[in-house]
Amino acid sequence: MNLRPSSDTIRLIVPALSLASLLAAVFWLQPRAMSYVGLNLLFNLAVPIALATIAQMLIMAVNNLDLSMGAFVSFAACVAATFLHDNPPLGVLILLAAIAVYALLGVIIHLRDLPSIVVTLGMSFVWTGLAVLLLPAPGGHAPEWARWLMTAKPPLMPMAIVASIVIALLAHFIVMRSSFGVLVRGVGGNERSVERAGWSALVARAGAYGLAGAFAVAAGIALVGLTTSADANIALRYTLLSIAGVILGGGEFVGGRVSPIGAVIGALTLTLAGSFLSFLRISPDWQIGAQGAILIIVLALRLFLNRIESRERRR
C-alpha cells in the first residue's frame, strides 16, 4: 500500500488550500455568507468562468493559448440571448457552426504550424465584430431553460456549487480518464512521439479545439442565464481570467500538464477573491490590484510546495 500522495495530488493541494483559506477568511469577515443563499451569491458568477477556464485549459493542454476566449464567450452569449431565445433551431445551428470554426482553427494552426496566439488574436476581432453585429447595444433575452438552469435551487447545495462539481468531474473524466484526453495531453507533452506511435496529432488538436469551443459556448449560455441579457463586451475579461484560472489550478503553459479539477478550483478562487476584497472594504480603486496580489501570493505558495515536492523526490 502506497500512502505517499502522487505528484498530481500535490499539485492539487495548493489550489485547494488557497480556495479553502480564502473561503475561511470570507466566512470570518461575513458569517452570514455561510448559508445556502450566501454561498450561491458568492459563487454564482463562477460557473461561466469555470467553463471558460476549462475551455482555455483544453487549448493549453496542446501547448497553445487562446487570446480570443473572452470575445468568443461574449459572442456565444449574444447568440444565446438573441437567436437561441427567438429561434432555437437556428441558434443551435449557429453555435454548432461556431464550435466547428474552433475545430477548424485547430486544424489550420496544426497544418500550417501557425502561432496560436496570433491566430486567436485575429479571431478575437472577428468574434467581437460578429457580436457587435448581433447586439449593437446591450439587450436580448435569456432562453427560459438557461434561466431555469442557472437559478435552480437543488436541495442541500446551491446550484453554483453543484454546477462547479459537475463541470469539474465531467472535465476530469474527459481529460484525465478517456483515451482522447490522454492523446490530447500527449500532444502537449511530446507531439512527435505521439505521431510516431501512430496517432494523429492533427485529430487530437482539432478535437481539443472543438471541445474547447463547446465548453466556451456553454460558458456563454450560462452567463446569459445569470444576467438575463447580453452585450458584445460582456465577457471580454474572461480571456485573462481563464488563463489565470488554469495557472492557479496547477496547469502549465507547455508540456500538457493540466488539471481540470484544479482549473475549476482556480476559477472559484478568482471569483471568491473579488467578494473577499469587497468584504475587506478595500477601496474600489485597489480591488483589481489586490486581485493581482492574491494571484502572486498563490503562485508563491505553489513555488514553495513545488520545492518540497522536488525535495521529496530526490530523497
Partner: peptide, 23 residues
C-alpha cells in the same frame, strides 16, 4: 462599414497575413 464589419475584417486580415507570411 459599420463597427462590426470593421472588426471582422481586421481580424480576418491579421489571420490571412500570418497564414501567408508563415507559408
Amino acid at each position: 462599414l459599420g463597427a462590426g464589419v470593421r472588426l471582422i475584417m481586421t481580424g480576418l486580415i491579421i489571420i490571412s497575413v500570418i497564414v501567408v507570411a508563415s507559408g
